[in-house]
Amino acid sequence: MNKHYASAAEAVADICDGATVMIGGFGGSGAPIELIHALIDAGPKHLTVVNNNAGNGHVGLAAMIEQGMVDKLICSFPKSKDPTAFSERYLAGRIELELAPQGTLAERIRAGGAGIPAFYTPTAYGTELGEGKPVAEFDGRPYLQERWLKADYALIKAELGDPYGNLTYRLAARNFSPLMAMAAGQTIAQVGRLVDAGGIEPEAVVTPGIFVNRLVEIADPAQEEVLNQAEARYP
């Protein structure tokens, strides 16, 4: 078994036009900047992207949107300190937005990875985000039906990875990544350090390797917030 790829470029090379791509991270925390930038270099178009946000500044997801690679974004909060990459395109009608409450977004991704096609949640009942969704009552309370979300690829960032794809995450950077790893056909993880088998204690594994297909080692990965403070742009 060898899930190790030599470079981010090789790991994302087959992501083609029209693919659905989940991207881990909450704001900059856990954003796989190097994988995203490699995808920008590869340049597939008409992508549907699933992320909690819509990018910040002119790096990472914001840069992907600026390059015109994204036709549709599924997210909960498309605002940030500098959301212009998304907001200008959205207000001009050049990018589609599917807005989902944050917990519903997370659970839809989890459901996609767990083989649960739909579930019921109280969230958004009676609001414009619930319009048109089937309603059912359980124990006297109304709930909305929500559907699973799956993707062709997931790009995620982890701290440690071993050759089997077992992963750990740093601090609060795990957020959506363990869920997205489950919900994608091909999960591509950039890891800060690739360790030998046994280098991660089995009790410490957060994402088991069965959910991970490709690993790239990126030591000292970039932080979106730090890049933005330096007013960086990509490419």
Partner: peptide, 15 residues
């Protein structure tokens, strides 16, 4: 009008 953004508010008020 504008860019809608909801975050976790709808989950919090129902949970």
């Amino acid at each position: 009008k504008g860019v809608p953004a909801v975050g976790g508010a709808m989950d919090l008020v129902n949970g």
